[in-house]
């Protein structure tokens, strides 16, 4: 049998499902020895790995809650050194440790460490600034957020841990809003128009980043791929909520344009094959219809008729969302 024939034969067997990629890897690893394809031998291994990962995640949650309670209950007793040690100290140690754990078998552990670090480090910096009576104004916000974005962006570049993309994006978003607040000389809490437009734009940026970064990777590692898909979905959802949430609150003439944006979200959900995006778009379409009905048609048709019409439209949108999701997203993504 020629080499090409052998390859074609193997391809056929893979496509028919008789052998898997892991069987091939097993053959090459064992140097042509016995095929390590018994599912039974893998299941306990995977189960123990999953159990370990769950313990890591629970550990992260417990550690963070523990630190917060420790600081809150013993703020005065532990003193300045203690406060810095449990926040910035642990943040720094976990950051360095996570960077040093490079092997793929420590993926969850290193990401757990990075999570602890990303939560405790900003807390530690605020504690430090508070100790030195430094007013946390908008300039401090800008410096802090950019600094943290660079630190965690560097860790992302070095370690390629997926969780770091979330932290880098989060700190960059903080920097983005701090810059806008600085330029317009406004507080974060003011519901000004510029914040709404800025939020819509950052939402669009999230969607583009998610599409760009998480669609172009040939990812051989299943666990890595799973994480990337999860982060992609988080960014798609946050982006859609940001665009539609800020857009619905603009009002005026934009109410008309907003309808087109909602339908663009429906189209994007099909294009990107993303169920969460279509569900969010459906919720916002229903909200917008109710808003427009109460704003423009309530006086002319009255409450009862408005409720009946709105009820039917809501049912229609609900079914449309379900249909599009089933027909164009779930089926095609199989």
């Amino acid at each position: 049998m020629e080499k090409q024939q052998i390859i074609s034969f193997i391809k056929e067997q893979i496509l028919s499902g008789k052998i898997s990629n892991s069987d091939l890897i097993g053959i090459t690893n064992n140097g042509g020895g016995e095929i390590n394809s018994t599912e039974e031998s893998k299941v306990p291994n995977n189960n123990s790995r999953n159990l370990t990962n769950i313990f890591y995640v629970i550990g992260v949650a417990i550690a963070i809650i523990g630190v917060i309670i420790l600081i809150a209950q013993n703020w005065d007793e532990i003193g300045f050194a203690g406060r810095i040690l449990v926040t910035l100290g642990i943040g720094l140690v976990t950051y360095i440790t996570a960077l040093l754990i490079k092997g793929s078998e420590h993926r969850v552990l290193s990401q757990s460490m990075f999570t602890i670090s990303a939560i405790l480090s900003p807390m530690g910096i605020f504690v430090l600034l508070n100790e030195y009576n430094i007013n946390i104004d908008i300039n401090i916000n800008i410096i802090l957020s950019i600094g943290l974005a660079i630190v965690y962006g560097f860790a992302l570049y070095m370690s390629k841990r997926n969780i770091l993309s979330i932290f880098t994006i989060a700190f960059s978003t903080w920097a983005y809003y701090a810059f806008i607040a600085k330029i317009f000389d406004i507080g974060y809490l003011y519901g000004t128009d510029i914040i709404k437009w800025a939020t819509m734009l950052i939402g669009l940026a999230y969607i583009l980043i998610a599409y760009g970064y998480y669609s172009n990777n040939d990812i051989p590692d299943k666990a890595d791929k799973k994480e990337k898909v999860a982060i992609k979905n988080i960014l798609y959802s946050l982006g859609t909520i940001a665009i539609l949430g800020a857009g619905i609150s603009v009002g005026g003439f934009f109410d008309i344009i907003f309808i087109a944006i909602i339908f663009a979200a429906f189209y994007a959900s099909i294009f990107l094959k993303n169920s969460s995006m279509i569900i969010i778009a459906g919720i916002f379409l229903i909200s917008h219809i109710l808003k427009l009905t109460s704003k423009y048609f309530l006086d002319s048709i009255g409450w009862p008729i408005a409720l009946i019409i709105s009820g039917f439209i809501v049912m229609g949108v609900g079914y449309l969302t379900y249909y599009i999701n089933k027909r164009f997203i779930k089926e095609t993504s199989l």
Partner: peptide, 24 residues
């Protein structure tokens, strides 16, 4: 195409900040 969208996604907020700074 994916790389272009990634670059646009990262650049968009930065360009926005630069433009509004210049406008103001």
């Amino acid at each position: 195409k994916e790389n272009i969208t990634l670059i646009i996604g990262i650049a968009l907020p930065i360009i926005f900040i630069i433009i509004i700074s210049l406008v103001i």
